[in-house]
């Protein structure tokens, strides 16, 4: 747990209680309860369609839930736009398909919300952006456009862009699934480093190596429910539920 968060260490980073969500009639999230402590690193895995992406997208209200309570950094989520935007400013998100802004350079991608949302002066925003781009080792590409970079580079820029808002928690939605195999490592390295610095992280991923290295807790979801959660050692070596065992045998079995 890092210093900045210590002051509010008494409240958990994220509290989710009794969360239910439907797409039309389809019950996609069922009675989810989840508390994430400050500095905790959580990996969420599960078969496709199990609701894991939907769950983390509810945390910054990219998806609206119909039942239940979500509290982020002490602020309860409501339908009020101002409150939602306030919460989003504390929550960084990295997407499967990067979603960088193709009409802006790497540097502008990292500055745009600093100058428009945080109302920082241009020079200060650029200084922050360059520091963080340095951290993800892509500062030399700052003036290029996203379309000129490789997938791995783009995803590192996307992580930098989210970090520029100085979020308290980072959400990763399958950050390496759209990458060519040889680029996965450069992105995971950045994420491992981020975890070492004490960032609170929720990570939907199938990178089990990453889960073993950094996760404090691994969560297995199926059919909209949290089936099993455990520290990585227990989770991978002694999975309790049958469905977890089946899933693990499928993704680790070859």
């Amino acid at each position: 747990m890092n210093q900045a968060n210590a002051a509010r260490a008494d409240s958990p980073m994220i509290e989710i209680a009794g969360l239910n969500k439907w797409y039309g009639d389809f019950h996609v999230l069922r009675d989810i309860d989840l508390t994430v402590a400050r500095g905790e690193r959580i990996v969420i895995c599960g078969p496709s369609g199990s609701g894991k992406s939907t769950l983390i997208r509810c945390i910054n209200h990219l998806e609206e839930h119909q039942e239940g309570r979500i509290v982020v950094n002490g602020m309860p989520m409501t339908r009020d736009v101002k409150r939602i935007e306030q919460i989003r400013r504390n929550v960084g998100m990295v997407f499967q398909h990067f979603n960088l802004f193709p009409h802006l350079s790497v540097l502008e991608n990292c500055c745009i919300s600093q100058t428009w949302v945080q109302k920082k002066p241009r020079t200060e925003a650029e200084r922050t952006a360059m520091e963080i781009l340095e951290r993800v080792q892509i500062a030399d590409q700052a003036l290029k456009y996203p379309g000129q970079l490789s997938g791995g580079q783009q995803q590192r820029v996307a992580i930098a862009r989210a970090l520029c808002m100085q979020p308290e928690v980072m959400l990763f939605d399958e950050p390496t699934s759209a990458l060519d195999p040889e680029m996965i490592k450069e992105v995971l390295d950045v994420m491992v480093e981020l975890a070492r610095d004490g960032m609170t992280m929720l990570c939907v991923t199938h990178e089990m190596g990453f889960a073993k290295t950094v996760a404090d807790r691994v969560i297995f979801m199926d059919q909209g429910q949290i089936i099993e959660q455990a520290p990585p050692e227990t989770f991978f070596n002694h999975p309790k539920s049958e469905r977890t065992q089946l899933f693990l045998s499928q993704i680790l079995g070859h």
């Binding site: 910054n60 990219l62 736009v81 935007e85 306030q86 989003r88 400013r89 929550v91 960084g92 998100m93 997407f95 398909h97 979603n99 960088l100 802004f101 745009i112 919300s113 428009w116 949302v117 996307a158 862009r161 989210a162 808002m165």
Partner: peptide
């Protein structure tokens, strides 16, 4: 995804439309 990325960074409607 473009609008989602802008939303995730806390941009309001007019910022998302006007800037992104």
């Amino acid at each position: 995804g473009q609008e989602e990325a802008a939303k995730a960074m806390g941009m309001g409607y007019w910022q998302r439309m006007g800037l992104i």
